[in-house]
Amino acid sequence: MSGPAIQVERLVFAYPDGRQALFGVDFTVERGERVALLGPNGAGKTTLVLHLNGILGSVAGGTGSGRIQIGGTGLHREHLGEIRRKVGLVFQDPDDQLFMPTVRDDVAFGPANLGLRGAELDDRVHEALVQVGMQDHADLAPHHLSFGQRRRVAVATVLAMRPEVLVLDEPSSNLDPAARRELADILAGLDVTLLMITHDLPYALQLCERSLLMDDGRIVADGKTRDLLGDAELMRAHRLELPYGFNPHSVPGPER
C-alpha cells in the first residue's frame, strides 16, 4: 500500500481525568523522512506519539476525535495489530520498556507476539541486539545494565519487530556524552522513517532535516530544523533555547 508514512488530521484528545492534551493536530511525514518533534514540557508531544499506534485515542476507547493513517492504512480497530507492527515506539524511560526478566526475553517479546517461534525468533533477537551492539548482554536482567545500555536495549526491542516507522521519546535524555553519540550513530545507520521527540536541539539538527514545533496541543511550526532553530522569535515564544554558544547555521546537519 502507498501513502505517506504518517498522516494525522484534526486530532483531538482528553485524558480520563479531564485534562485535554491535543486541540486539533495536523501533519504528514513522508517515507524515509527523519523528523524531530520539538516543544516545551506539557505541549502534548508524548500524548501525540502514543496516538500513532493506537495506544491512546478513540481507537483505544479514549475520549477524542480525528484521523490517523500509517503508510496508507487507516488507524481502525481491525488494523491495530498491523499498525503496531509498522510503528515502533521507544519510550522515554527504558524501565517502562524493559519489563521481562532478561534482555533476551524482552527483545523476543514483540516478535513472539507477531507469531515468531524457535530459531527464527532467536535470529530476530540476535539481529536486533547486534544492531545496537548489545549482543553480549542477552542474558542479563535489566537492572544489571547501565542506563545507556538499557536505552539501547529498548531500541532493540522495537527494531526486532522490523518497524517501518520508528518513534522515539527523548532518546538522548539522561545519557552521558559518549552514550549519546553512540545512540546517534545507531539511529543514523537505520533505514526507517524516524519521528523523534527531543529537547536536545543539537541532536535534532544532527539527525533530522525537518522539525515540527508543538505547543499547547497544536503544531505551531513545521519546517527545516536549521530554519526553526535559527528563528529566535519563534524559539522564544515557545520556551525553546539553544545551548550556550551553539549556532545552528555553523554546524553540519543531515542535509546533502
Binding site: L50, N53, I55, G81, R84, R85, V87, G88, L89, F91, D93, D96, Q97, F99, F109, G110, N113, L114, T157, V158, M161
Partner: peptide
C-alpha cells in the same frame, strides 16, 4: 506506561 509499551509491541 509498561502496559502501553507492551501493547505497542503487539
Amino acid at each position: 506506561r509498561v502496559h502501553l509499551a507492551m501493547r505497542s509491541r503487539g
